[in-house]
Computed example of a mutant assay.
Amino acid sequence: MGHLATAADGTRIAYQLQGDGPQLLLLAGQANSHHWWDPVRADFERQTITLDWRGTGDSDRPDVVYSTEGFADDVIAVLDDAGIESIDVYGTSMGGRVAQWLAIRYPERVRSLVLGCTSPGKKHGYERSQDIRQALARADQAGRDRILLDLMYTPTWLANHPGPYYVLGDSTMPTYARGRHLVASNNHDAWDELPAIKSPTLILHGADDLFSPAANADLLASRIPDARAHVIPHARHAYFHEFQSVASQLVLDFLADSSV
């Protein structure tokens, strides 16, 4: 079901509630709407809350500076509108960067935290290679999609799953908004603040992820008190989809342990 929250600057943020039970907030990757979670959302056997980042989906698309800290403020507007005081949070890719700020700036709102295929930021995190950046920048849309699919999934999985794919970005985004998302994600830097995170934290990553290298998992675990990391063998950036039987169960087990 679709709802609209209003951020501090008046931007309307679309969000969706689905299912019943304990609540879990799911945060998607850069330049993607809530559809990022469509293939795995039912795995969690909870009431899941998703949102369309500003610039995507049914949210407003202001041509202003975006940041991961600002996206976190948008999430708080959603939680306030939904009447949610505290919630378990699972963020992947850029959504994991936003989730870091949620746990840092709004600790009372985050019961437990799962960070997937993400990074502490540009100054200290392990970033994708310059070759990958240049290839994505040079490619036309079809070429870019082919490169992204190779970064997201193994060749064997792609050969047996012709789509649709939900991790290639929101095709309805204006060009300026896509650029704003890229800059927001690239400028993320939570390194100095990560030790302040109090929420129980699980970090997940694909071992063969070149889009956000797997070394980031242990790096984050070394900065967040009592965090534990699990790296999934053979998985790439979209580990949560291709390896969902493993990844979703890891999340469910962690959430069950954290609620005890």
Rank of each mutant, 00 (worst) to 15 (best):
E85Q: 11
P22Q: 01
N216E: 07
P120S: 02
L182F: 09
L182E: 11
L151G: 13
V98Y: 01
I203K: 12
D218L: 14
K123R: 15
A214I: 02
A7Y: 03
G29S: 08
A82W: 00
R46Y: 03
A214S: 15
E45I: 01
G21I: 06
N160L: 02
G2R: 14
L4E: 04
L220V: 03
P174S: 14
I224Q: 11
Y176D: 09
K198C: 08
I224K: 10
S222L: 08
Q47G: 01
D145R: 15
H181F: 05
K122M: 10
T50S: 01
L252I: 04
A42L: 01
A190G: 10
V78F: 06
R54E: 02
L255P: 15
D253S: 07
F211D: 15
Q30E: 15
V98W: 10
A135G: 05
R128Y: 06
A72P: 08
D58H: 13
D218W: 13
A142T: 14
R97Q: 15
D208E: 15
R41T: 03
A99R: 12
Y90P: 03
L27M: 15
R138E: 08
Q130W: 11
D257Y: 07
H234S: 07
L252C: 04
R146I: 13
F240D: 05
V260W: 14
Q249K: 11
D208A: 14
D60V: 03
A256H: 15
D43F: 00
S93H: 03
